[in-house]
């Protein structure tokens, strides 16, 4: 039997727009994943701690306030510090084209901008799981 994939959907920063995060959480559940949802206003520290306690395979960060350049890399750094950088980080939200490249360079594995279909998110995860095998 293969392991069930666990995914943390987290809202870093102070942004209260959680429509997208909740949709993703529910859609991932419908596709057979176990999803842990943190709720609003999580610090990078609490996100990484949660990810480690819950032993997730992925962290999905959702942010619409524009603080992604500061907060996403902090999550990546903390994962490294805790020897947990095998956890794959992806992000979503209002993220300008210019910022995507630099976030990917810092270790975010995918960025999904508004209008992205859930199918794209799932195929990203599936492809990644295949690579791991």
């Amino acid at each position: 039997m293969t392991d069930i994939v666990r995914i943390l959907i987290a809202k870093p920063g102070l942004d209260g727009h959680d429509r997208g995060a909740k949709y993703i959480a529910r859609a991932l559940k419908e596709n057979g994943y176990e999803v842990i949802y943190t709720g609003l206003r999580q610090t990078p520290e609490s996100i990484v701690k949660t990810a480690i306690q819950e032993d997730v395979n992925y962290i999905g960060l959702s942010l619409l306030s524009g603080a992604h350049n500061e907060l996403f890399p902090q999550v990546i750094d903390l994962l490294k510090k805790n020897e947990a950088d095998d956890i794959v980080v992806f992000g979503g939200g209002v993220i300008p084209e210019d910022d995507i490249a630099s976030l990917m360079e810092k270790g975010v594995k995918a960025i999904f901008t508004p209008g992205t279909s859930i199918k794209e998110v799932i195929s990203f995860i599936e492809n990644n799981e295949k690579k791991n095998k």
């Binding site: 596709n31 057979g32 943190t38 609490s46 949660t50």
Partner: peptide, 19 residues
């Protein structure tokens, strides 16, 4: 029971202790 997936949301109310 259909997809095998789950949303695990209980810790949401305990996130005070995340640090």
């Amino acid at each position: 029971p259909f997809s095998g997936g789950a949303i695990l949301g209980d810790r949401l109310r305990m996130q005070n202790h995340a640090s």
